[in-house]
Amino acid sequence: MTSPEVSTIILFIFYTVSTILAIFGTIGRNKKLKYGSCIFAVVAFLFQTILLINGFHKNFISGLSVGAYLQMLAWFIILCSIIATIKLKQILLLVFSAPVCLILFMISSPFLKLMINIPSTIKTSFYMFHIGSLYISLSLMLIAFISSISFLLIEKRIKHKARVKGVLADLPSISNLDKISYISTVLAFPFYTVGLLNGFFWSSSLFGSAISGDPKEIVSIFIWFCLAILFHNRIAKSWKGKKPAKLTILIFSLSLFSFIIVNTAMNSFHSFIR
């Protein structure tokens, strides 16, 4: 079994190469380099999958390090990006996801030994669903975020009769970007809901109440409301274009705030690093 330190170095190298190719491919508008970036990201994903299958995280229920959690998120991001790339035939998603995964691996390395002790009362498979569904949701929101940012940049230029040039010229059409964002957010909402309900269930079993006023809970409920508004308007009111793109960016920004600031800097049940 490869140790977490060695596997982190190997995956870090894969994602570094993938990111370098992604950056040079995007700036230099070179398709071959972009495809190269995708290949390295997929290789990294497969390697990490093999490690997971072989029991890399065999102590998942009894406790996992903060670093391992971040690496798991990277795995989910690449998984969603690969599926989206195949389904939507847009390599943009994998190309942009690789640098995000590299950042996650960089952050993860100092925290490989920092264990998160899960109370024995919630060491159930529900816990896996809680993390898994929220990670899938966050990965999908990242895809929606990338598409929405790209959409707004290109749409603004078209609307104001400016030339779409440079890096933007290689991105998909605004209709396709809106479609990617739409599919990602519509799928993210049910996963987020499942993840949240799981959280409330544990909270209820642990503290006797589903909502305890924890900052993470409040922020998560607010994100859920925003996501619900987006989901409803996308489905029922056929929202397209700028409005949903802006709301998607807000939701993802809030999710990042919840994931980074609340988990690390605030006094919360989820503030593992503190």
């Binding site: 078209i158 009769k161 030339r163 397209k240 700028k242």
Partner: peptide
């Protein structure tokens, strides 16, 4: 052109696009 999801280009706008393309 002020509506969301609606894009309007008149002859002058297209000429500007062409001019910019020529410079490129």
């Amino acid at each position: 052109n002020t509506f969301d999801n609606v894009y309007l280009y008149d002859i002058d706008d297209l000429k500007e696009v062409i001019e910019e393309n020529m410079n490129n």
